[in-house]
Computed example of a mutant assay.
Amino acid sequence: MALQWRVRLLGAAIIRAVPPYARMSDATRRRLNSRSGPRWVGEVLSGRPDPGASVAEVVIPGPAGGIPALTYRPVGVDGSLPLLVVLHGGGFVFGHRSMTAWLSSHLATRVGAVAVAPGYRLAPEFPFPTPGEDCYAVAAWAAEHAADLGADAGRLAVVGESAGATLAAVVTLLARERGGPDVCAQALAQGAFDLRPGAPMMIPQAAWPFGRAADAPDTVAAYLGTDGDPQDPLVSPQLADHAGLPPAFVLTADHDYLREDGERYAVALRAAGVPVEHLHLVDSPHGVLSFPGWCAAAVPALDRMAAFLRRELAVLP
């Protein structure tokens, strides 16, 4: 299927503006991760946050110090709300807590939930297992401090896009292994779930917008560092035992080099008895939820994800 011209134009501009990871200087990478520049530029690219959600900054105790995070809560809604941990993408080497402002704020209002969006540590300075351990620490803290957030620890979900979806899957595995927190649902948008050298995402077959597929081996190598093993289920969740994991919403798109990863993960979850809602988008690129002003499918996809989370996090009679 064909992409809209504006999506192709934006994708080409991003690819032109951002050099390949292997040729990128540390200074350039840090600048890209600093979120410097006028706020309106980010909003043009990534959408305006929902004005119906209040936002606050918080620092969460992590394995090696504070993890900065943003919290979103629907304005004027009282009571104990569901709790979402929303993890940004960026190939494990890029990203900032504010990258999910559109997604987190709109999920907060559509689901009627408190959303916590952390800025977890990134490779190559902090390779595996640091990003996943940071995200797990955030989920555990959010559950423990749910009452302070005006939320219900018994209605916790993890949400992620791209590398954030990978880490959301890792959080559910760690929560099961460590006996908590109790994760009730997982929403995984366009994640990478198999990081082995021969996996589909590591052998790009075409040029894709919004994600230089040829960068995958380099960013994965940075994420693995010296201790990461692609055969480890906490690196490649596709290889995990999926029994007993929470219900999942899996989002894939046709113009995405991670499409097959999402499809295979949905099949593996279903085979283990996990309830799965799989939404596949046509005429859509990687990172569709990060470019709502450009991708026509972003808002309908958000609505489907929100409906899934409302259903799974509803208070039972």
Rank of each mutant, 00 (worst) to 15 (best):
D229H: 04
G179M: 08
L167K: 05
R176D: 06
L188M: 08
A168W: 03
F210N: 07
A185G: 10
T219R: 07
L234E: 02
G179F: 02
Q231V: 00
A192N: 08
L234V: 10
A199L: 10
V183T: 04
L174D: 02
M202P: 04
A168F: 08
P197C: 08
A207Q: 14
P217M: 00
G191T: 10
G228V: 07
P217N: 06
D194Y: 06
P181S: 12
A165N: 05
G228A: 07
A221H: 02
G180C: 10
R176P: 12
T166G: 13
A168K: 01
P209A: 05
A189M: 14
G198Q: 14
D232Y: 09
G228M: 05
R178S: 06
A221I: 08
G225H: 07
V170R: 08
P209R: 11
D229S: 02
Q205N: 10
A169M: 12
L167R: 01
Q186L: 07
L224H: 04
P230C: 10
P181Q: 08
R212A: 13
C184L: 09
R212I: 11
V170C: 03
R178W: 05
A221P: 01
L174Q: 14
D232N: 14
D218C: 00
D218H: 15
V220C: 04
R178D: 11
A222R: 05
